[in-house]
């Protein structure tokens, strides 16, 4: 079941590939509690990230998912909750 756990590194990989990296931002594990907005990701970017997460881990995301993942750590936690519920 370990493979089904979604990690911050998984998230960062998706962010980098699908939403790009803003000038002056370093995507490393220290960003977990920085808001997506501060990292240069607007609501469209978060929607894109969320859709790719859904695809990667195979969960469907509720419409209000964006508002429930203000930071990368919150996103990881939310996704793992969804995974647990889906099991």
């Amino acid at each position: 079941m370990l493979a089904e756990k979604f990690t911050l590194s998984d998230l960062i990989e998706i962010m980098r590939a699908r939403a790009g990296v803003a000038e002056g931002v370093r995507l490393d594990t220290a960003i977990g509690d920085t808001s997506f907005l501060e990292l240069g990701y607007d609501s469209l970017a978060v929607l894109e990230i969320q859709a790719r997460i859904a695809e990667r881990v195979g969960v469907s995301m509720p419409d209000d998912a964006v508002s429930r993942m203000p930071t990368p750590n919150a996103a990881v936690e939310f996704v793992n909750q969804q995974l647990a519920q889906g099991r």
Partner: peptide, 8 residues
């Protein structure tokens, strides 16, 4: 091109 713009 800025990285955030390239992808979008």
């Amino acid at each position: 091109v800025p990285g955030r713009l390239v992808v979008q």
